[in-house]
Design a protein around this nucleic acid. Structure first.
Lengths: 226, 226
DNA sequence: TGGGAATAGATAGTGGCGCTATCTGCTATC
DNA sequence: GATAGCAGATAGCGCCACTATCTATTCCCA
């Protein structure tokens, strides 16, 4: 197909497709003449993946380029692929080395030891976790051990579910892509489910049909406080 | 204190503080003369909260303004506060009404019914979830019922942990802020823990010390590269 | 009491990012 | 042969989170 049809099928404007090619997200079409190129279903599939990673996953274009490059390179270790995808907290803020950060790092180390998790501290997720915990401490809402252990219990369940999901797709050619989608979109999916569960849990605990009603809430009827 | 000291204490540049005041994130200082204002610990605390929400939570300035406005207005229902915080997926993409979206919506409805969750479909999290599931389907990696149920199990654990965390802070004046911090930063914290658990789970399953090795992985020793 | 430093408030500019518009010369198709 | 579409290149746009600069005023220490 030509670029116009690719655009029509995916809903992505032609200039945007060209932009993605320029940025290395999408391989160029196969040239049949100096100004004619053909695209196939691989391009279409890749383009859909790009859009989903961008719009739903919230990845930046540069991160997507890295991730896709890694998907196409079977020799690359997977943690590098996911490292590129871990963009939300990843490379933006340099960790300030204050007391909170040191405490948080120790907390993370203890958590990993307590769970018996097999991971080295080189894992960037550990650093991200330290940063987030330090931030919570800095605003006076430090996480308790109970909270962390609750999260860890839940995370183990999620990890098992994810592994089961991936192992069920035995098509090896899809494996890496499946892991990426599962990790990036799975995060979004889980976060939404978590918000759903919040509503239910607070409804059960506090009886009200609404959410955790804050101090002085005047009920579900939109009172004076608009 | 004056703005310079506020800046020094928090590490936020003076022009940025002024910008936050302009944007309604931070209340202006108390004027003692036409060009002198005093700031106190409330400002300092608020400023730290803004930065954490921005840098770690990934919220946009406009979303933070809404959230903080709601924190300061005790009459506002809490789900509105959290709605403003649900910015990652929230108001950006209008749901395209294709077949995938319809399927996803039905899946979400079934999930909520299956769990017996007390939530109405007006909950924006449900719509976010539908969108994410539709996206996964669109790229050929649809989520299975098992995966969703696994996520739901985990989400219930997280919700219980969060509720316990909040209920332990009985200081009512902090309650809403605590919920916001717990929801926004808790998400970041959980996602990091999830990534940690992934590494452990795959190490356990596949034996290799590394992560899920992708297609054609030839062992932990970085072989010929595919 | 003088003077450099800091301040409030206003306006304009910056850099990054994800596109989007336009242009040139060419090609497919009817 | 006319019209539409195309590749590749360059420039511009809109949003966002700041950042720089300016004026008039006030602080504060010598």
């Amino acid at each position: 197909m030509r670029i116009g049809e690719l655009s029509r099928r995916t809903g992505v404007p032609v200039p945007t497709i060209k932009y993605y090619v320029r940025e290395g997200l999408l391989p160029p079409g196969e040239l049949s003449s100096p100004n004619q190129a053909h695209y196939d279903e691989v391009h279409e599939r890749r383009l859909r993946l790009i859009r989903v990673l961008l719009e739903v996953g919230g990845l930046k274009v540069a991160a997507i380029a890295e991730v896709l490059g890694a998907i196409d390179d079977p020799g690359r270790p997977l943690h590098k692929v996911l490292g590129a995808a871990a963009d939300r907290l990843g490379g933006q803020g340099v960790a300030d080395d204050d007391a909170e950060t040191a405490t948080a790092r120790a907390t993370v180390e203890q958590l990993i030891a307590r769970r018996g998790w097999r991971t080295h501290e080189s894992n960037p997720a550990a650093e991200d976790l330290s940063r987030a915990l330090a931030a919570m401490g800095r605003v006076g809402h430090g996480a308790s051990t109970e909270l962390l252990d609750g999260y860890a219990d839940a995370a183990e369940i999620v990890a098992r579910a994810d592994l089961g999901y991936v192992s069920r797709r035995v098509a090896v050619e899809d494996l890496v892509e499946s892991v990426v989608v599962g990790t990036v979109l799975g995060e979004v999916v889980f976060n939404a489910i978590r918000r759903l569960a919040h509503v239910d849990a607070s409804a059960r605990l506090y009886g009200a049909g609404d959410e955790w009603e804050g101090s002085g809430a005047d009920g579900p009827g939109e009172g004076s406080g608009g």
